[in-house]
Design a protein around this nucleic acid. Structure first.
Lengths: 341, 341
DNA sequence: GTGAAAGCGCTAACAT
DNA sequence: ATGTTAGCGCTTTCAC
């Protein structure tokens, strides 16, 4: 069923039907009612391609996922974010277009999206300091919102971010308050913006208390269970070992927990662990993590905010950049204890 | 830059340019060369909406994700699958349209996609026995491929699946061969097709050896670390405890491993664990799992196959259903040992 | 081998 | 408040 057929059926012009369906004010209520009813009965849906051709808008948002960053898509953070953003799009009658591409093709993909006007805007994932995508998107004139920040001088773009710096500063202070002096940081790849900020927060806290941050207790790599395990095993095996760990993700913390178990140490009395995880909300039924003090934020919330922000920006003809900084929440678990004797 | 402009620029009709760009045979090589060169220089991209309007095809594939099944999208299996499928689409100039919807809206979403002809086909995720989506998609005439199977009598649709039944049968036989008699199954939700098949394979193996499958040693729920932990803790705390676990996912196995550690048992000598995980490929650098015997399959491969199969089906005008059953691979780790005395 | 013209299904001036 | 008409950017007859 298309407009022409519906028009013939009702004996009303295509224009009026279009106006009625799109809630133009000038249509009489009687007509609108009739048209809307008929549209439902006959299962009419406007063809989005035709609509897009006529309006120049695609009613779609793009997400470009470079596949090289395996850790990116295979990652609860990412999945949770996508789910949240997707819901917002659905509610607002937008489509979500995902492009999975080799990282060398990433720039070309953005150019493609812009040239083909396939999407009205894009979300930028996993920004790095001084991210080239931001300049590119600006030059293409494609509206965008960054999930995270790109740490360069340029703040002239919209973003939604978690206060990673503060989260790690607070985590470190929490441990320092407990009396810990030997604190290790197990971090993600520090060429990623979020990981860099986390380290900064960690270092600031230590410096402010005059505690020395030992290089051998600060490691960073892809966030895997295995990396968490190996890092902790190594550190715990040294003559002088940390009494506490701050860990940048749930999955790494699981590895750390394994190492602690194998070392014969007891969580809470022998050793303390704080984790930060943006996607802790994926734990079922709000289950507490049994063995950690967690600095959690909700990536689900960030996904909603990013999506909504982008839709607003697209709707607004002369938008100024907007920024949202989400604070994290510290949940004290029973087994994060004082410094061991 | 659009066709008309390019046409004016080159002094060639839009028709010929279109034919040249789409590799129609009747165009002279000289013209084709000129046109293609110009298209590149001037950064011309055919507008997909206009193209779609004219051809009736959308060059897009849909993935509908009901959000209620939290475990679905927040799941390495899903992410890995999407990544693989997405790559195939990219290579074949197709878009990937993801719809994240409340599960009550799922049917409406499929009807929408069909009525608006937004996509040329869809992939069905997480089939349940006798899945209603299959009938729906057939009645809508929307081409589709199922990742997994729906276990009803109807085999008249295309699917790509892992041989879950056999994987678990082999895992159980492996343990039985080692001398284990007390084997526990920690499974996913058994209203999901894959989990049901896994249980069937497990039970068959035990039955064939005359080993009794104890109900209290077969549990099933959402696949979380916590569920794996709690299940194992409980079972290990009973007077008669299992000597081996077969676990349906990596994340649950991590929980099981934690429980084993807390129980003071030693992997490989006191207790054995086999896990099945379709997404083990997400482990970095092909790292071995240090403590398990894994029955692995590659969901990445399944994603590629599903996507390619769907594209083939769409291209073929009178397609017959195709099926692919992927076998799993058993990797014996050092710590899966014989039955303890 | 190339071109002119119609049409895909919709929206948006511009009437009335 | 409603209708007429001219596109949006492509593909596809049909003609030459």
């Amino acid at each position: 069923m298309n407009l022409k057929e519906l028009s013939a059926l009702l004996g009303i012009s295509q224009t009026t039907i279009s106006r009625a369906l799109n809630d133009f004010p000038e249509v009489s209520e009687a007509t609108r009612k009739r048209v809307k009813a008929a549209a439902i009965t006959h299962n009419y849906r406007a063809n989005p391609r035709a609509k897009g051709l006529a309006t120049g808008r695609s009613m779609a948002i793009g997400h470009v996922i470079p596949i090289s960053t395996k850790h990116e898509i295979v990652n609860p953070i990412f999945a949770d974010f996508i789910a949240a953003a997707g819901e917002v799009y659905s509610r607002n009658a937008h489509d979500m277009l995902m492009s999975v591409v080799a990282d060398v093709d990433e720039e070309r993909t953005y150019r493609d999206l812009a040239a083909k006007t396939s999407v009205d805007g894009v979300i930028v994932h996993g920004p790095k300091p001084n991210d080239s995508r931001i300049k590119l998107l600006k030059s293409l004139g494609l509206p965008f919102v960054v999930h995270g920040r790109a740490s360069d001088g340029d703040t002239d773009y919209s973003w939604v971010d978690v206060n990673n710096r503060r989260s790690f500063e607070r985590a470190a202070n929490f441990l320092l308050d407990l009396g810990h002096q030997r604190i290790a940081l197990i971090n993600g790849l520090e060429f990623m913006d979020f990981a860099k900020r986390r380290k900064d927060g960690f270092l600031d806290a230590l410096n402010n208390r005059g505690v020395i941050a030992r290089p051998e207790w600060m490691v960073s790599d892809e966030m895997t269970e295995d990396f968490g395990y190996r890092s902790a095993i190594f550190m715990l095996g040294q003559p002088v070992a940390p009494t506490a760990f701050i860990v940048s993700s749930m999955i790494m913390a699981i590895g750390v927990r394994r190492a602690i178990g194998e070392a014969g140490l007891k969580m809470g009395s022998d050793i303390s662990v704080i984790i930060h995880d943006d996607a802790l909300s994926y734990l079922p039924n709000g289950a507490e993590i049994p063995m950690f003090t967690a600095t959690k934020s909700s990536v689900h919330h960030a996904g909603q905010l990013c999506a909504q922000m982008l839709l607003d920006i697209i709707a607004d003809k002369d938008p100024i950049p907007r920024h949202i900084l989400l604070e994290t929440e510290l949940t004290v678990g029973e087994s994060t204890g004082p410094v061991p004797k």
